[in-house]
Amino acid sequence: MMEQAFFLILATLAVGAALSVIIQRSPLYSAFSLIGVFACLAGTYIMLKAQFLGAIQMIVYAGAIMVLFVFVIMLLNIRKEETALDKYRYLWLLSIPFAATLIVEVLYTILKVTSDFTSLPEMAKRPEVGDSQSIGYGLYTGYLMPFELTSILILLAIVGSVILARREKD
């Protein structure tokens, strides 16, 4: 009961912050709302016993990726509010029914399919996953190949971003 109340609080905060991301006109306010969403999601991860990913969520998403976003917003000094062009005004009106349809559709499916989900007895017997040990074991055994590939990806991303953002010498 306590857990459900806690989840509802987190979910409300997350949805509110997510709405704020798209409603705010200044990118910096959007960025800080997004950090709020990430923090709430880290909370839900911890509720799901995935403590390691909860911490990593805060370190990587909120602590590194969003700092990068905020850095770029500050570097380009984007203070003016974005203005929508008039010819696209109708898109705003269209988006609301489409979003509503999508949400209703997905929610219907989810509730229909998983409302009778109960954890099977043999699943409950398995050890809980989500501590650093189980993640580390998984990464270095069954998922070694993708793990090593991500390091190459990161290297490529570093080189790529340096080349892209470098000012060309005249």
């Binding site: 390691f52 911490a55 805060m58 602590g63 700092v67 905020v70 501590d131 650093s132």
Partner: peptide
């Protein structure tokens, strides 16, 4: 006592920068 206290500290200290950034902005 948290069994990933090292990560918790890293996560919290990485939040500290936002105060400075917000103040500057």
């Amino acid at each position: 006592r948290v069994d990933i206290s090292m990560l918790v500290i890293l996560a919290l200290t990485s939040m500290g920068v936002y105060g400075i950034v917000l103040a500057g902005w």
